[in-house]
Design a protein around this nucleic acid. Sequence first.
DNA 1: CTGATTATTTGACTTTTCTCAAAAGATTAT
DNA 2: ATAATCTTTTGAGAAAAGTCAAATAATCAG
Lengths: 181, 181
Amino acid sequence: MFDQFPGLGEEAKIAFEKELDSLLVDKGGLLEQEGKVCDHLYFIIEGSARSFYRKENKDITVSFSLEGEFLTAMHSFISRKPSYENIEAMEKTKVARIKYESLLKLFEKHHDLERTYRLILERYYVSLEEQLIFSKFKSARDRYLDLMDYRPKIIQRASVGQIATYLDMSIETLSRIRGKI
Amino acid sequence: MFDQFPGLGEEAKIAFEKELDSLLVDKGGLLEQEGKVCDHLYFIIEGSARSFYRKENKDITVSFSLEGEFLTAMHSFISRKPSYENIEAMEKTKVARIKYESLLKLFEKHHDLERTYRLILERYYVSLEEQLIFSKFKSARDRYLDLMDYRPKIIQRASVGQIATYLDMSIETLSRIRGKI
DNA sequence: CTGATTATTTGACTTTTCTCAAAAGATTAT
DNA sequence: ATAATCTTTTGAGAAAAGTCAAATAATCAG
């Protein structure tokens, strides 16, 4: 879990792992729900998830997460306000999670853990920024081709509808793009 | 500068301020340039700035910042890779800034400063997420109306062209929207 | 102040993507 | 296995926003 964060000491790791709580969710099961404050930072051990929200009875996918990645409804987790996001398992998925409160407590004792969290946050930020820019300046077709290049696994695991809202185009447009490759 | 971050102790503030470096930039002057690693976190004391990048000889505005706000080419600042962003003063602008290296050093000594930085980062994140969602699900007209509501000062200070690329629409479309309010 | 440059607005037309509708293909529960 | 449901594909027409071009308006340098 922390291979990617070499600065983290053994002591902090152990303390962190003590606070972890593990969870198995079925396909379609919700890890987080809109309207509630998101209290957990998740780590996907196995499986995949997507976060989405609802607009006029449609699900709009905001992000996809695969095993080995941290995940939360960051906006709510940070701001402590009710989330507008839902997080749903895309298949049978195993996650570890830690409570917001526990995390803050651990920060008091383990400086290096707060740093690691900061790094996770930074990653989150960078990927969001890439997503913004990428969505801003490319045609529907290029957004799809980019996704194929950078995150091919998502195309294998997510439905056309989920991918379409993620890429900000209609299902029909995506279907037509796929037909023409 | 730190009024918004009550958790920060006097000692850390003093140490931080010691590392600050103040700068006056003329209208159009560049604080950061694409291709270079961004080494500074800025704070706008007076004036305003925008960050943008170039695509096919056009400037695409990514964000606007006003006095009292922290600002950097976050992607590069975080990743230590060359920036694709430029940051430019929109008028005569006074900034304070700290070097990336100095900041990291201060983190070693002042845990509360690293926390404050984390909070700045969180804010950055939240505003980026809002921008993404906001750009994703609104019509050109609604994006403009939202900007008028949330950041009216930007509309007063930035040019039509700058606002148009920020809102991801053509200059002509924005001009027509403005004509019809 | 004045000509030159740059920014904004307006018009006509094009392109991209959307919406609605229907058909075809999968998936799920009984 | 089969009906029922959900997802994907395909077609046709509509809407939103883009492009190109020209006219105004604003800003800047000498």
